[in-house]
Amino acid sequence: MKPQRDTPLPRPNVLTRPHWDGCREGKLMVQRCNDCGTHVFIPTPVCSSCMSSDMQWVETSGKGRVYSFTTVWRPQRPEFEVPYSVAIVEMEEGWHMLSNLIDLEPEEVKVGLAVEVVFHAASDEITLPYFRPAGA
């Protein structure tokens, strides 16, 4: 499976722009709470563990494991090429994010599979963080 050629692209706002700017620079950025240390995703004005406003954007390892997945055959919209693999990735730092898995076949996807982020430029402004088997 490969990156999609034509997807609806994110329109970053003041809260989410640091994440997307990071992707464009090849870094997987996430907010970390300076008061309690929790990594929080998606971007939020205050920490969801302790409601602190002291949130800092930090670079993460980009490594994790497939927490769950689904191979999609009926696309959300016709522009998507099927099949594509939607996954929840559990990151090393303990946070979860949705993405698509690439560089593997549908039957190779398993819960627990070690994966790493791989960035794919979708437009001048937007780079999307896909995941592939670790060390591929």
Partner: peptide, 24 residues
């Protein structure tokens, strides 16, 4: 949502992610 739509999700995929975890 910008962290969901670009990955081709919709309700069937969202509920499938819950089901696959339970099955695993």
């Amino acid at each position: 949502n910008e962290f969901v739509e670009c990955w081709g999700l919709y309700t069937a995929a969202e509920f499938a992610l819950i089901a696959q975890r339970h099955m695993a």
